[in-house]
Each structure stands twice: as structure tokens, then as C-alpha cells.
């Protein structure tokens, strides 16, 4: 591991010197430092800042401190009762040990597990812009079918972020408010740029609006537990008289960011809450998919997941 200096952050808006990065739970960053993929000169520990509260908001929503541990958030009474999709997504991610360490903001900002990104000796446009993307012709079985580019087809690995995307979460930083969907940027020709955050901008909380329907998260992976998704769906659904009154859908492990399925939602509103409408809605979203040699299976997987999750909620 490259050497670095360490200090603790003492205020929310103190920013970062050049070459510095924030450290929270460290479950991804410390690993990437061991691998030589992350090489910060300075680590600024934000875990001593007062960011570990979950509190009710006046509008009936919830404010989740950026430093709240994933395990604590998963079992918070209001999350379990009003936002089950979030609790389910958190518990589907990582292991008990890792969830005790990982934080809300750290989870949002974790890096892709694309094998070429995780290997400092391989070309990767995120490590070194212009060096190429071996995944295009190589191992892309678990990489993006939506939102990728010839420069990068990495997938965002988080489960929690998929649930938060379906919940219309808003990210608060020390400088501004951002819809979660606007936090991430698609790779285009600059995959090294993953979010709109400026250097030193600190996420302080994630806000949820009041609960807007029944919700659920379902994740498919290569083994029963403790694995990243090969595909996942988060859904919030409200049905009146057999008709879809409101729906929010997000897909995981298929795109460089948690993928909000706006086209599917539009196709569903006002339609009968039946399996055939759910499948048609999934098709409306997945028509834009651009699979490569080994990941077209995700289209069928997501299509079936959408139908089964929505049937479970309808």
C-alpha cells in the first residue's frame, strides 16, 4: 500500500487538500488501497463527525445521516415499517461484518467491482483515461447492458443505492441538495468521472420523501448469499382498483449507476396491475439495452424480476 498521512475531519465543510480523500467505513477504499487501485496521499476520517443519526422529517419522510452504518439502517424501525425495499436491499448486500462497518454515503460512493478496474496492472479508462477497456471484448458477463459506452461498461455494485433510487432519495452535501439520480454521471468518454461531486464535497445525509406505496427489493446472484447482484429490482407500487396508480422502479447490476426505469414506469401508470402489463413495461425499458457477447441474459433476468416483484406487491 502506498503511504499516506491520516487526519480526522473536525467540521462538515472543511473540504479536502489536493490528493486527499474521505475515509468512512473503509470496506471498499481500504481494499482498493491494498490493491494499489486507490492511492490517496491523505486520508481524512469522517467517522468522528456527527453524521450517524436517523431522524423523522416534518413532511413525513426520513433523514439518514451519511455516517449511519448499513446494519443500523437496515433494522431501523421506520425503515422496516415504511421503506421495506431499503431494509431488504441493505440486508441483501455484503455480510454482517461489512454492514457493521459500511456507511450510507460510503455505500453510495463505492466503486465498481469490474475485474479490470480492480486490477491495477490492467488497462482501464477509469485508472488511466485513454488506456482502453478490456471488458468490451473480455469478461463482461456481469457488466452493463444499459448506460454503458465504448469507454466503460462497469456496473455500480450497490444494492442500497438501487432501493434509494426507487424511493426518490435526495442527497444533501455540505454545499447543495441533489436528487440521487443526478449524483451519478454515465461514463460516456470520461468514465473516470463517476459523480457530480466536487473534490472535497461531503455528503452529509440522504433524505427520503414520505412513503408512497408498498415496496420490495429482489436480488439475483450467483450464490445464495454474500455475492454482488447479477441483476436486481427495487419497486414501489400503489394500486387502486386493480389499476397502477403510481410506480417507481430501479434496476441494479445492469448499468454504471442505479438505473431508474422511467420508461417502464410511464408504460405502467394507469394500466391494469397484471403480469402482462408488468412484462410490457419491462420491455419498454429494456428495448434500449445494448448487451455484449456474454451479458444478454440480464435482459431476460430483469424482465422476469420486474414481473415477479410487481406481482408480489400488486
Amino acid at each position: 500500500m502506498k503511504t499516506f498521512t491520516y487526519r480526522t475531519a473536525t467540521s462538515l465543510d472543511e473540504g479536502l487538500e489536493p490528493g486527499a480523500t474521505f475515509l468512512a467505513g473503509g470496506t471498499n477504499l481500504v481494499d482498493l488501497m491494498k490493491l494499489g487501485v486507490a492511492t490517496p496521499d491523505v486520508l481524512v476520517d469522517v467517522t468522528k463527525l456527527p453524521l450517524d443519526e436517523v431522524s423523522d422529517r416534518p413532511d413525513g419522510g426520513l433523514r439518514i445521516g451519511a455516517g449511519v452504518r448499513n446494519s443500523d439502517l437496515a433494522v431501523h424501525p421506520r425503515v422496516r415499517q415504511d421503506y421495506p425495499v431499503l431494509s431488504q436491499a441493505l440486508l441483501a448486500g455484503a455480510s454482517g461484518q461489512l454492514r457493521n462497518m459500511a456507511t450510507t454515503a460510503g455505500n453510495l460512493l463505492q466503486r465498481t467491482r469490474c475485474r479490470y478496474f480492480m486490477d491495477a496492472t490492467m488497462p482501464c479508462n477509469k485508472h488511466e483515461p485513454g488506456s482502453g477497456c478490456p471488458a468490451q471484448e473480455g469478461d463482461h458477463r456481469n457488466l452493463a447492458i444499459l448506460g454503458g459506452s465504448p469507454s466503460c461498461i462497469a456496473t455500480h455494485p450497490s444494492d442500497m443505492a438501487v432501493a434509494l433510487t426507487a424511493l426518490d432519495a435526495v442527497v444533501q452535501t455540505d454545499r447543495r441538495s441533489l436528487a440521487l439520480g443526478d449524483l451519478y454521471v454515465l461514463p460516456g468518454s470520461t468514465p473516470e468521472q463517476e459523480t457530480v461531486l466536487s473534490h472535497g464535497e461531503l455528503i452529509t445525509s440522504v433524505d427520503l420523501p414520505d412513503p408512497r406505496g408498498k415496496s420490495a427489493y429482489r436480488k439475483v446472484r450467483d450464490r445464495a448469499s454474500y455475492a454482488f447482484a447479477v441483476g436486481s429490482v427495487a419497486a414501489v407500487l400503489r394500486v387502486d382498483d386493480g389499476t397502477v396508480a403510481d410506480v417507481r422502479l430501479a434496476f441494479g447490476a445492469v448499468a454504471p449507476k442505479p438505473w431508474r426505469a422511467y420508461r417502464a414506469e410511464e408504460a405502467l401508470r394507469g394500466r391494469p396491475a397484471t403480469r402482462s402489463s408488468f412484462l410490457e413495461a419491462a420491455d419498454a425499458e429494456l428495448a434500449a439495452a445494448t448487451p455484449l457477447r456474454d451479458n444478454a441474459y440480464k435482459i431476460t433476468l430483469i424482465r422476469n424480476l420486474v414481473a415477479s416483484v410487481l406481482e408480489g406487491l400488486a
Binding site: 491520516y6 475515509l23 473503509g26 481494499d31 467517522t47 446494519s71 461484518q97 461489512l98 457493521n100 462497518m101
Partner: peptide
């Protein structure tokens, strides 16, 4: 009191 992976925690923290 909480279980964690000690290999991913920097002691200095």
C-alpha cells in the same frame, strides 16, 4: 461489541 473484518480497518482510526 460488533463483529467486523479486522483486515479492512486501519488501526489508526
Amino acid at each position: 461489541g460488533r463483529r467486523v473484518n479486522s483486515c479492512l480497518i486501519l488501526a489508526v482510526t
